[in-house]
Design a protein around this nucleic acid. Structure first.
Length: 453
RNA sequence: GUAGCUGUAGCUCAGUUGGUUAGAGCACUGGAUUGUGGUUCCAGGGGUCGGGGGUUCAAAUCCCCUCAGUUACCCCA
């Protein structure tokens, strides 16, 4: 049979894992520096935990897990005959794969509330699954790197998260722009232009596309979604505002309470950051809307400056995420790094540093069976001394053994044959320079010991 | 769900208006070279041309169906 993997999934080679771990390690280090602690949640959740949390579209993108055993026993013949899949699903699947890390986190907080102290800061780096149609930079299985604080309304945490974003991209050597807005400002725009609550989502969905499709198309989309043309035009006018001061004046003019509230919140964040300069550019972006999910306050997004690649981080504040699980008044704010896209950017810009792919320090190559026995003893000595090493398992042609060392990018080869066994002096070859030296085992251990290199 | 593009050796891909036995590079195996790789040279193995049907004297090539991958839309990391 032809080997295949499911659509939208990928294998990872050791080299790719090394690079991916490099990104994860930097994110983890910075998260921990800022007091976030790791948690993990199960790969599968009860379907009832997941459904209805991501909108109608989201439900379709959930991977469901077929029940074990006689999964059809609770399905009535009538239901089967009607072929109504949506009605049958809950009867044959009670579990599903996690779709993101935020909803499982909300469930986690509610279930473990007695064991946690609030504000609770957690980070979580795990894969999620979506039954979306894959395309460039989008997969059915991918990692999210989330950090959230739950149980505080303080805007200090927004400031902290911005510092985290800045620090991570500084360490990764990627130049980015951090876009920030507040949904209350968008509500203010709706208020100012008389767009009612029923069209608020239509407005945000449309203006979120401003940088992608341009002003004209955004205007068209709003009208297509049922917003009166003059109102849509007014919205477009407001979107040209690019300073907070200007916006404050405008919101004051129209007397929009929520607009002013949003402005105030942004100003507070800026005040926190006043004396802590950022490396990257923090940009107020009035057109940033981030779709229509659970965000209610601050919203973030990050784009790379030098590469065309969509957003590489998203985040924001949600006032009531745990409410659906029975825990009220828990405001939270969080971010999520898009690890795969960051990987692609770093690959495209050759931003991964040298030497992050770790293999063994030395490979022992041998000329005959006697040397192989002898070499296995040397190998054990190397490993006891803490030196990562391997031996070629058969005394085949030198060329083949050398090629193997090359292919694995092993820096040193230890050659063992009759001469070496007679004298006890081993040949150590530097595979980069080609230089060889003969050394007794003790000296060899010193030269190769990790503290020396 | 809708549309475009692509399926040829293990991998990346050539293959002319349909025409004899379908090719290259890389990888692999053996040899030149009985103690030395990353840079040589020679030879070799490997193919249901995604699958099925049709047109034709003749199909990798043209037509239909189907499967898979991929890109875009919707949505999203």
């Amino acid at each position: 049979m032809k080997p295949r993997i499911p659509q939208g999934t990928r294998d990872f080679t050791p080299q790719q894992i090394a690079k991916r771990n490099y990104i994860f390690e930097i994110i983890k280090e910075v998260y921990e520096l800022y007091g976030f602690r790791p948690i993990e949640t199960p790969t599968m959740e009860l379907l009832s935990t997941l459904t209805g949390k991501y909108g109608e579209e989201g439900d379709k993108l959930l991977f469901k897990i077929l029940n074990n055993g006689d999964f059809l026993k609770d399905v009535s013949p009538e239901l089967l005959a009607e072929k109504k899949s949506a009605a049958i699903i809950p009867k044959i699947a009670k579990r599903g794969l996690r779709y993101d890390l935020t909803v499982p986190f909300a469930r986690f907080v509610v279930m473990n509330q007695n064991a946690l102290s609030f504000p609770f800061k957690r980070y979580q780096i795990q894969p999620v699954w979506r039954a979306d149609r894959p395309q460039k930079g989008r997969y059915r299985e991918f990692y999210q790197c989330d950090a959230d604080v739950i149980g505080s309304k303080s805007l200090l945490y927004e400031a902290e998260l911005i510092q985290i974003i800045d620090e991570v991209f500084k360490r990764l050597n990627i130049k980015v722009t951090i876009h920030i807005n507040n949904r209350k400002i968008l509500a203010g725009i709706a208020e100012a232009t008389g767009i009612g609550a029923e069209h608020f989502v239509d407005m945000t969905v449309a203006i979120d596309k401003l940088d992608k499709i341009g002003a004209e198309k955004v205007m068209e989309e709003m009208v297509r979604r049922g917003i009166a043309a003059p109102k849509a035009e007014q919205v477009m006018g407001l979107l040209e505002i690019d300073s907070i001061e200007q916006l404050a004046a405008k919101m004051d003019d129209v007397g929009s309470e929520s607009g002013l509230n949003g402005v105030e919140k942004l100003q507070t964040i800026w005040r926190f950051l006043e004396h802590s300069p950022l490396t990257n550019y923090l940009k107020f972006d009035i057109a940033l809307a981030r779709g229509l999910n659970y965000y209610t306050g601050t919203i973030f997004e990050v784009t790379a400056n030098d590469v065309e690649m969509g957003s590489i981080l998203g985040g924001g504040r949600y006032d009531d995420l745990t409410g659906i699980f029975g825990l009220k008044n828990m405001s939270g704010v969080g971010i999520s790094f898009g690890a795969e896209r960051i990987y692609d950017i770093m690959e495209a810009g050759s931003l991964f540093p040298e030497g992050i792919v770790h293999d063994v320090q030395a490979l022992i190559v041998t000329f005959d069976d006697l040397a192989l026995d002898y070499g296995f003893g040397i190998l054990t000595a190397l490993r006891k001394a803490g030196i990562a090493a391997d031996i070629y398992p058969e005394p085949v042609k030198m060329k083949k053994q050398m090629k193997y060392a090359n292919a694995r990018a092993i820096p040193f080869v230890i050659v063992i044959g009759d001469n070496e066994m007679k004298t006890g002096e081993l040949v150590l070859k530097n595979m980069e320079t080609g230089v060889q030296q003969t050394l007794f085992l003790e000296d060899l251990l010193t030269v190769l010991s990790p503290s020396q290199t």
